[in-house]
Design a protein around this nucleic acid. Sequence first.
DNA 1: CGACGCTTTGACACAACTCAACAACCGTGG
DNA 2: CCACGGTTGTTGAGTTGTGTCAAAGCGTCG
Lengths: 241, 241
Amino acid sequence: MTGTPRDGSLLARKLCAFVQLSACELECLAGLHAAPIRIPSGGEIVHEGQTGHVVHILQEGWACSFKLLPDGGRQIITFPLPGDCVGLRSVLLRTSDHSFSALTDVVVSRVEASRFLEVFSTFPRLGAALLWAASRDEAMVVEHLVSIGRRSAIERTAHFFLELVERLKMVGLATDEGYACPLNQYVLADALGLSAIHVNRVLRQLRERGLLTVRGRSVQIGDLEGLQRLAGFRTEPFNLQ
Amino acid sequence: MTGTPRDGSLLARKLCAFVQLSACELECLAGLHAAPIRIPSGGEIVHEGQTGHVVHILQEGWACSFKLLPDGGRQIITFPLPGDCVGLRSVLLRTSDHSFSALTDVVVSRVEASRFLEVFSTFPRLGAALLWAASRDEAMVVEHLVSIGRRSAIERTAHFFLELVERLKMVGLATDEGYACPLNQYVLADALGLSAIHVNRVLRQLRERGLLTVRGRSVQIGDLEGLQRLAGFRTEPFNLQ
DNA sequence: CGACGCTTTGACACAACTCAACAACCGTGG
DNA sequence: CCACGGTTGTTGAGTTGTGTCAAAGCGTCG
């Protein structure tokens, strides 16, 4: 153990942006990744209202967290990416307040909430780093709320893809030119608070303006600055303390 | 010190719903409330982008947290009520990511973030209780996101007022019949992602259907169950661990 | 090949926004 | 006491963004 994260632990890599973790702390973190399990595309990771406190650390693949409405509608809250913790909040609340499902085949580590609580008391710095990551996630939800409440369909769509670039770049899964993205227009609609058909129209506009092209399972960015101007996007100072 | 919260510490009252706090812990909490300051209606409590880590504990009055957009639009994220912590997240992030301002005259206690960190290490149970409260707040933001993304204007408005009843009842500021509420239609519009004029029309509909009447600075609930049916509202199981 | 999932397009409906005007309410000052 | 201006609420007419319905085009995979 050298004090740098092992390859493959994207969570460690992300947390190291917050504090330099010691070998012990990294070892502890690695211990949490024991026994990863594979969940096929479409599978449920956590069901809303489910009791029992389990945190999932996403290792590979794309997932989404969402809430269902009585009328069958769905609102996607966020897309956890590799290296993200899923359901950290349910460590403290008794029941999970939203569902998670896998959008692609996914590899996760299941961690009992009690293990997390132990980590907090044994390695406070590591605990703080995990809370820092949770704070960042919450800030993203807030930004999403702003998008849906006050931005037009095209601004909000542009903003969404810009935020994805930033997040994916942090774990080495994107460049300023584009990235692989398995989200179809129905999923985008449920995330952006639009109808799938309108998502299609918006994507066409973005393409025709040369800003962004979504083809198949990949996103190509045509004009980064143009997108940022359209979306009113400024790279968030997710600064460290 | 008896192990029950002193009158006036609504935060203690709220946290006691989570764990029974010891006399020491209550004393520590009371210590955080030292030197309350008054901020006049319309005053800014925290400015977006502001650095420096201060948490505010709201004692009296109404406030809102919001983000501004380049075009001058505003999205209100949440309305902190007496007993709520404001800016807890900025303990870990370097800068505050949204602004807070007072909607009425307000009394707050300013607490240095470092004091909070001390509390976490000295009284872990108290720290857990504070995190529990923060988790609850985050769940509210998520519910707000769902409302704006997937509910119609009238459903979302009904849902909003129902959520307010629940929160205010917890601190003894509402009954099932109604409550005092200083929010005008412009503020409601910025919270609900609507125009002020449309808020007016929606409120008229709610009144004409006998569900809810907003007059002056008070909200009268005409038909609680009808509202819940309209909004698809279920009282959230904000359960304790 | 057909079946399926996803995307694309058009025509139309409707919810919500904008603009403009007016009404009610308030505290203030003459 | 009333006149006043500012803030907040109310209403109507017309516009626009987005949703709905229906259908066709395309890849991919069995």
